[in-house]
Every structure is written in C-alpha cells, then in structure tokens.
Design a protein around this nucleic acid. Sequence first.
DNA 1: ACAAAAGTGTTTTTTATACACCCATGC
DNA 2: GCATGGGTGTATAAAAAACACTTTTGT
Lengths: 248, 248
Amino acid sequence: MAGRSQRKSTRSANTDPLENFKVGVDNVIFSVDTAQNRLLVLLVMRQEEPFLGSWSFPGTLVRQGESLEAAAYRILAEKIRVRNLYLEQLYTFGGPNRDPRENVDSYGVRYLSVSYFALVRYAEAELIADRVSGIAWYPVSQVPQLAFDHNQILEYGHRRLRNKLEYSPVAFDVLPELFTLNDLYQFYATVLGDNFSDYSNFRSRLLKLGFLADTGLKVTRGAGRPATLYRFDSEAFAPLKDKPLVFI
Amino acid sequence: MAGRSQRKSTRSANTDPLENFKVGVDNVIFSVDTAQNRLLVLLVMRQEEPFLGSWSFPGTLVRQGESLEAAAYRILAEKIRVRNLYLEQLYTFGGPNRDPRENVDSYGVRYLSVSYFALVRYAEAELIADRVSGIAWYPVSQVPQLAFDHNQILEYGHRRLRNKLEYSPVAFDVLPELFTLNDLYQFYATVLGDNFSDYSNFRSRLLKLGFLADTGLKVTRGAGRPATLYRFDSEAFAPLKDKPLVFI
DNA sequence: ACAAAAGTGTTTTTTATACACCCATGC
DNA sequence: GCATGGGTGTATAAAAAACACTTTTGT
C-alpha cells in the first residue's frame, strides 16, 4: 500500500509535489427505536467554522499512532456510552476543496475524511453532552441540511445499512441478548419499511435457517399470548456466513 | 467531513498531536481473458525498498490538488492503455505500522492507502512497460506473495468483483460494444466459476430482463450456427438500476 | 452426413407471497 | 368472553435448476 515507488514516468518526477494530508474520521451512527418505529442517526452541532451552528456527523482528526478504526471508536465513545454496536468503514472522501479550511488556515494541507458507519443499541445508548455542544438523535427522514457533504454521506450510509441488514446478521449485534421474533421483525420493518415482508413469512424463513435458538423462556407484554425468547446462535450461523441473501 | 471541530473532551486538547499523512492510491486492476477462461490481475514489480523485487499493485502518492479518483486514473493510465473500464473505490487501509517506511525515512508521517478496484477490457489493454519495471497480468488463482498486505486487498477486491457482477452491469463496460450471449456467459463463468449457472437458463434470464438489444447481426466463429450479436441498452436498463440481484 | 455451436422448450423443484386460522394470555 | 398479540398452516404464484431437444452453420 501507499505504493510510493511507482514513480517511473520520469516526465513528472519533481514537477508535481505531493500533497500533505490531515485525515479525519466521521461517523454515521444509526440506531433503531423499535418502540416508536424510527430509524435514527446521531448528529452533533458544530462549534467552529466552517459551518458553525450546522448539524454534522461526529468526527475527529486522526492522531499520531492511532489507527483509523481506533479514531472511529474514540469519537464514538466521546459521544455515546454504549456496549453493543457494529462498526465498519463506509467510504473515503478526499477530493480537494471539500473543506473550506484548505484554502484559508492550512498551508497546502488537505483534509481527507474516512467515514465510518455504525449501528448501536438504542435503548442502552447514553448521549454524552458537554456544556457547549448540541447532540441529538434525528429520524433519518427528518435530518436537516448538514455541514460539508454530510447529507450525501448519510444517503450512502443509509443504503449500506439496508444492504447489511439483508445479508448479514448485524441486527443481532444490536438487539438484546434475548429477543422475540416480533422484536426482530419490528427492527427490520423500521429500517427496511413496513412492507418488506409479511410477518408470518418472515418468521418461518428465519426459523428455518436454524440459527435462532429457542431459549424456552417466554415474555408477556401486556395482553396477548406470551412470546418465545430467542437467542442468536453464532455457531449455527457460521456455515451460512458466505451464502448470499440470508435474511429477508 | 474532516470534522476537526469535535475536540470537546478537554482532557486531550494538546496532549495528543495529530498525525501527518501522505495518501497513496493502489489499484486492483482486473481483466477477463475469455479466450483462455482466466481472471487476471495486474501486478507490478517494486523497484524500491521496502519490498524491493516483490510484486504489488500499481500505486502512487496523491499530488497537490489531485482528487483520489484522479490519482487512481493517473496510475492506471501510466500502466495500461485502455479505453473501456470500470473503476470504483475499494477500501482505505490506514493503520500505523502498515508501511515499514514510517519508522525510518519519514519523520512522523504516516502512509495511508486508498485502494481502488478496476475492471478493464482485456483485449484492448496494452501494458506499458518502461525499461526498469516489471509488469504483468497474473491469473488471480496464481498470484505470488505480494508486498505489504496486498494479498489481503486482492481477496477483498476479488469478492467485490464477484458481487458487482451479480447485481450491476459492469460486464458491459468491459465487453465489446457488440457481443454474443456466449461471450457474456463465458465472461461470467470465468469470474464466478463454471458452475454458476446453466447456459440455457442464463440466456433466458438475461433476455427476459429486456436490456439486451438484438442487433440483427450475426457472427460465425468456426463451425456451428452463427450467433446473434447483442448490445447493452442502457436506457432499457435504467429502471432496473436499483432493483436487487438482476444478474445471475 | 455429421460435428459443432446457437438457440428453444419442458419438467421438476424450490422459494416467495398472500392469507386464513388456531393459541394463550390479560382484562 | 373477547380483544390482543403470538404462532401455525395452506394454497397459489413465481423463480431457479436440470436437461432434452431443435436449428443452422462449416467441413
């Protein structure tokens, strides 16, 4: 990587100087409020120029010796306290002139952003608000105009979330240890839209796959028949890992 | 992006200095030799330390004012002459200590690599060899030990290629303007493995989708009945863009 | 005539979709 | 007993997979 070596075309040896970069990490953090059937994304209010007062994704610049992923976890931990989450890299935005600061306060330094996509457990996530900065969960359908090109990134992240949900077991990283099939269904319906599948068909498909273990336990929520609590059996799932389109 | 601002946790205001980066771009360039049923990847021989003499992906460092994608196209153009291709970003590798140079010749500068994935038309691709550097197409099943973590990146790129092929029309960026259904089938079979589908079923599925326009033209290749030449009709494909799993 | 490659059609199996209906509990 | 949510089953439609067969060319 960073294949500096391939500078063979002698024509451009010294003529085009290399760019110096600062690397930022921005997190698109989703959570699902199943109680209210809302898909949420975490926004913070910018306290500096540029875009002072605009909402944006929580971000940070990468420090010496820090990996990209570590930076992503750091900024996440600064904003919310949460134990159960899924996180992966989303995309790298690195064109020049993305960031207004480039031409002003930084002499020839470019700001590159590696965005990360995270899904956290809503119920347990505690937002950490310091005195000055605003921080809030926004329904993705109602996010305002964001700083930089963050609206675009959100769209990209949202698409990734939907895809991930369909063919990988990310939902179980974020659902409670024990859950009912209805919990699972609500989760999917919130992210994918109500009409993604019939509940009864969803049930039988998921159960037939064989990685949902019946714990024997039941929960009663108000009226109605008690629901069976299931557990995600990662061992039983392992052989299906590389198969296409497992869920939905 | 590059959300420098969110540095609220006062505890670490000045204590942890930011890292300076050089940003590299590495290209995983695939092509399909349908004649010999081989999936190929382009490798170049490194002319410098570290990993002098190892094969690696063609890469370059990003220059002032140059976008990441522009850098990817630049290094591609330095290695092969080709008009028809597909290119997209793959992944960003940016941990510290990925590159041995970090501790030696560069004072606190980190090398980050944004990898790109490309698919080019094999028949028309001319490799550009300068006097010193080695450059070659390798069958992906036979790539040797590569420099850095490039073997890992290759695996990642290969998976991406297979996925792309299944749900997006990248094949047509790389096939000739006019092609037979058998050409298309061979292309898919080479990338996805011979047993991905029955030829006859592949035919009917693709034709039913309605974006392959019969040109009326025929080609005879040796013995056998002449084959119809088709053309990819991008207008007819447009409405299917966002549908899942169109191909195979 | 026959081999080779292109192209069509048919049968079987599997999976998706849409519902109808039974079950267990709280009130 | 009846409303409420949980859970099962069935009937139909569509898609995938396997494979037999016809058509058109070169030799």
